[in-house]
């Protein structure tokens, strides 16, 4: 099973240092790992750095995989809305990068399978420009899955989805990770989702890791106060699951 570890990873845009000294333990395959933190903390940059799309010092260590660097797939927040392409074509596009013009039946079968798994096969022949933000996000997930990555970096994949779809997609990703052994890192803003679906969590603030480990140990009232400046409690619900309850007062200082 694939695993990933970051050692002293940093990232720079020109002369500006946007990430520094990012260290993680071994991020295991077969599970979801949440990457959380305030806006502009550097979550997307961590993903880009892991995927080799941003420059910087440090080492991204990937356990031996058959696919090498192609094992890693970064899924940006959105997919282009201006392109005159159908959903089906845009997913095919992702699968066909680096290969010839001819499209084989097996490749189309894989697209059909992914669209059906995400329950968006009814959108298959709609134009990207006709989709809602949430639908485009699902297409973006399909584009990532069709590449069959071993490490999937999902940048806020549920930000535009309704509650039902959020639960459906995260549940699906968790099952998929368990079944396939894929390592899935997900940038999330809804920390209750992190508590429910992600075994481990990495907290990033101001371009550095401020906490990492099992989610229930990382997402605490103290962390919420120091990183998010929010007064909240993390308590067990009637079914015993931890949930975040935000109190009225917000520490803006």
């Amino acid at each position: 099973m694939v695993s990933l570890a970051l050692k002293d990873v940093g990232a720079t845009y020109g002369r500006r240092v946007v990430l520094s000294d990012i260290n993680t333990g071994v991020l295991k395959g077969g599970q979801l790992t949440a990457v959380i933190g305030p806006n502009a903390a550097g979550k997307s940059t961590v993903f880009k750095r892991i995927a080799g799309l941003a420059a910087g010092p440090g080492l991204v260590h990937l356990s031996d995989t058959a696919k090498g660097s192609e094992a890693i797939c970064y899924m940006p927040q959105d997919t282009g809305a201006n392109a005159v392409l159908t959903v089906y074509e845009s997913v095919l596009l992702s699968a066909k990068q680096g290969s010839g013009w001819k499209v084989k039946d097996g490749e189309l079968q894989e697209i059909d399978r992914v669209l059906a798994a995400l329950k968006i096969n009814e959108l298959a022949f709609r134009g990207l420009g006709e989709l809602s933000g949430g639908q485009r996000q699902l297409v973006s997930i399909a584009q990532a899955l069709v590449r069959k990555p071993e490490v999937l970096l999902m940048d806020e994949p549920t930000s535009a989805l309704d509650l039902f779809r959020q639960i459906e997609v995260l549940g699906f990703m968790k099952r998929l990770a368990t079944q396939s052994g894929m390592a899935v890192l997900i940038a999330l803003h809804d920390l209750n989702h992190a508590l429910r679906y992600c075994e481990d969590t990495i907290v990033i603030s101001d371009g550095s890791v401020v906490a990492s480990g099992p989610t229930h140990a990382v997402v605490t009232a103290d962390m919420l106060k120091s990183v998010y400046r929010v007064e909240a409690r993390v308590e067990a619900c009637s079914r015993g699951r931890p949930v975040i309850i935000v109190d009225d007062s917000i520490a803006l200082g």
């Binding site: 799309l53 970064y74 392409l85 596009l93 990532a144």
Partner: peptide, 23 residues
């Protein structure tokens, strides 16, 4: 252009998306 047909099409999905496809 023909050799880069898939890559050029992917560029229309946005720079980040195209880069995420390994382009």
């Amino acid at each position: 252009f023909a050799r880069r047909a898939w890559a050029l099409t992917a560029l229309r999905l946005g720079e980040d998306k195209a880069a995420s496809f390994g382009i």
